[in-house]
Every structure is written in structure tokens, then in C-alpha cells.
Amino acid sequence: MKNSLTNDAVLQQLKSEFGEAIMSSENPFDLLTVEVETSKCKDIIGWLKTNPELQINYLTNIGAVHYPDLRGRELAMVYHIHSLVNNFRIRLKAFLSIDRPEIDSIVDLYAGANWMERETFDFYGVIFNGHPNLKRILNEDSMDYFPLRKEYHLEDATREDKDDRFFGR
């Protein structure tokens, strides 16, 4: 199936619609990657969904990345959205500060975002405003840290039979 949309055309449309909220863009491996303003993220996803021409309305994935070195924008939210009609994929990024990791939930746009957002909360502690049931999903409720942030260890802390020197800890 051929792409009927081009990266440039979609980017132009986004820019003319949202102007300043589209902060930067690149095309790694032909996948349009757009960095957007955090507060406008939900609006943009909603616009992409309802736009009759683009029809970018299949949520592929939500994830987060932790960059401890980027001051004030430590957490990156990454949305992969797909247009099944036009066979066009787009990746949206919104950066959050680790002190106030808050972003609007998109559960009312995509029912499937529910668990993806809960997982992101579980792993990175991102707060999704407006999420109906924001609690841990994979880890125990009693867990008191967000394990996928870079500062936390991977290994189980209770192992005694492993010599740290041989396991790079």
C-alpha cells in the first residue's frame, strides 16, 4: 500500500493549524517526528483524529523516555499514531519536567490509551490529568518509586549470591 500523504504536507498542515505549538520536527527513517507543546498535545492528537483528510486515528503506542541530563525537560512523552486509511504514521513528542510531570490524558479520545497511560505512570510517574483510573498497573501498588527512571537499579536488591564485581554493579 502506498502512502498518499507526505511528511512535509502533514507538517505544513500542522504548522498552519497550530503555529507556535509545533516546536520542531525531523524525519528519522521516514517517520515524521514532531515535537509539540505539552499543553497543546491533546488538542493536536484530537485534531489529527477528526481531520477528515488526514484521518490519523489509530493510536499505536504511548511511551515515555527519561533523559536525566535535559534540565526541565527530563521526561519525553512519545505518541505513535497511525492512519490506517492513508497508511501514514506520525510520532508526537512532548517534553515534561520531572518536578511537575503532568500532561492531559487522551483516554476520552482513544479508549485504548487507558492502560498505556497507566503503564507510563507506573514506569515513569507521569501524571495524566483527566485519567479515570490512574494507578499502577504492572507493579504492586505498594511500590514507592518509578522503576524505569534511569536512576533506579534494574536488579533485585535481595540477591546475596551475586558478587557485584562480576555483574557490573
Partner: peptide, 24 residues
């Protein structure tokens, strides 16, 4: 979804797991 920073292992690797998404 793979992010490499040029190191020996991925900076971030996320799996889009169909089960997780449709089981909800």
C-alpha cells in the same frame, strides 16, 4: 520502538505489545 544513543545497549526500548493493548 528503539532509541539508541550510540552505546552498547539501547537507551530505551519499548515493545508495543498487542495483548496488553487489547486486553483492556
Amino acid at each position: 520502538y528503539l532509541i539508541s544513543d550510540g552505546g552498547r545497549s539501547p537507551y530505551r526500548l519499548q515493545f508495543r505489545r498487542p495483548c496488553f493493548i487489547y486486553y483492556q
